[in-house]
Design a protein around this nucleic acid. Structure first.
Lengths: 223, 223
DNA sequence: TTGCAATTCAAACGCTTGTATGAAACTATC
DNA sequence: GATAGTTTCATACAAGCGTTTGAATTGCAA
């Protein structure tokens, strides 16, 4: 089994290069040069380039998913099997946003890699994302419990919009910064989380009893 | 100038192939075979592969942008220089959604091409999207006029979330259908538009006077 | 130390890609 | 109907890619 040195050097180099330059123009030769290993090592240890990318993405996304479920479970246990919708939504989008946003200079390689994965979406990554549905169903279940009078259709749309706001904000963070001339502070991650959760909560609760508080205001003072 | 036959045959074939199989695995040789023209014709008429892709995307996106601005202008003129926020948002997301969603079997090649462009985002397309900011500023202006008491930051976030919901729904329409086991009807485009507009309106008006109507209901019967 | 499996290595393979070339075939003008 | 300009064509090019090969090296167990 040796020391795994070569294997992890490849993983680290690949993640760094993909994060910096995207999947499109990073070749295996770039990766092995950065890692200081032989070209054939990639195929020896991973089988193929796609499997290398897949392993990188799987590693990072199970981390995020685990964090999501941890928050969800904690919230539901605290509430005796039923968590408030805001907290569920926060468990859904919080880990992703925290993992990908934040001050650029202190953004981890992993974070930058996941942003790339979100923007470019190469085949091996897409294949993995398609298997994420079971994971999302757990959130659907929790949301149903939190909003028993809401129709399934509304639940699905609410979930879709929550993910939409989180992922799009990550993907287009640069554009939003430019459009707003810096007025939208994407480094204040908790403010972003609060905004997304607030809007998603409104989407899910509008029309019945109206969200307890204006929701925005209460989420706001994290700032 | 001849008949332009070759040029447009290439454009049509390229759009069709990209729409069907994505940018990743369509080569120039595939395109010229489909178009029934010579390989060198692409470089003769377009200069390079990237310029061909760029021309395809520019053509389609100026169509969408023109439609957006037409709706926006009509609404503002009708309201004497100030349109209701719902109508502005509808002008923003309506054309895109109508252009990309709808029953799959009657979805135009152009629509499927734009969905691909939204998912895969190759370099020449990304370059063009980055120049879209000026276009968005016109909507920022309209939104400011509609909601003069709202801060710029809130306006930008509202715009961001509206685009997020529209684009993400397009990108992930397949996943949403699968997750909801068909309960979310993505072929009912006007319902999707109404949902996005409704949520975005709430996001932009929450905390002050509360959106006049549940917004959803009134937008609903467009169908 | 010997033997064996795991790992590393340089080199090459085979294929595909976008692009360039220069001759041939048109088209229209005078 | 010769001429000039445009467009098409077969073909080749050069580069880059992921992958494979088989020999060399290493590390560990007997």
């Amino acid at each position: 089994m040796a020391s795994d040195h070569t294997r992890s050097a490849i993983l680290a180099a690949a993640e760094r290069l993909y994060a910096d330059r995207g999947f499109g123009d990073v070749t295996l030769r770039d990766i092995v040069a950065e890692a200081g290993v032989n070209l054939a090592a990639v195929n020896y240890h991973f089988g193929s380039k796609d499997e290398l990318i897949a392993e990188l993405f799987v590693t990072r996304s199970v981390q995020t998913n685990r964090e999501r479920l941890r928050e969800l479970k904690a919230a539901e246990e605290e509430g005796g099997g039923r968590a408030p919708i805001e907290v569920i939504l926060r468990a859904l989008v919080g880990p992703t946003l925290r993992g990908c946003l934040g001050p650029e200079n202190q953004r981890s390689t992993a974070a930058r890699f996941m942003i790339r994965a979100s923007i470019e979406s190469v085949p091996p990554i897409r294949r993995i994302k398609n298997r994420e549905i079971d994971h999302l169903r757990k959130f659907v279940g929790a949301m149903r419990r939190a909003l028993p009078e809401r129709s399934d259709v509304d639940i699905y749309w609410g979930l879709n919009f929550a993910l939409a706001m989180a992922h799009h904000t990550i993907r287009e963070s640069e554009r939003l910064t430019k459009l707003s001339e810096g007025k939208c502070d994407l480094d204040d991650v908790e403010d972003v989380v609060a905004r997304v959760v607030s809007v998603a909560t409104m989407a899910l609760t509008a029309g019945k009893a109206e969200a307890k508080a204006p929701a925005r205001a209460l989420a706001r003072d994290a700032r």
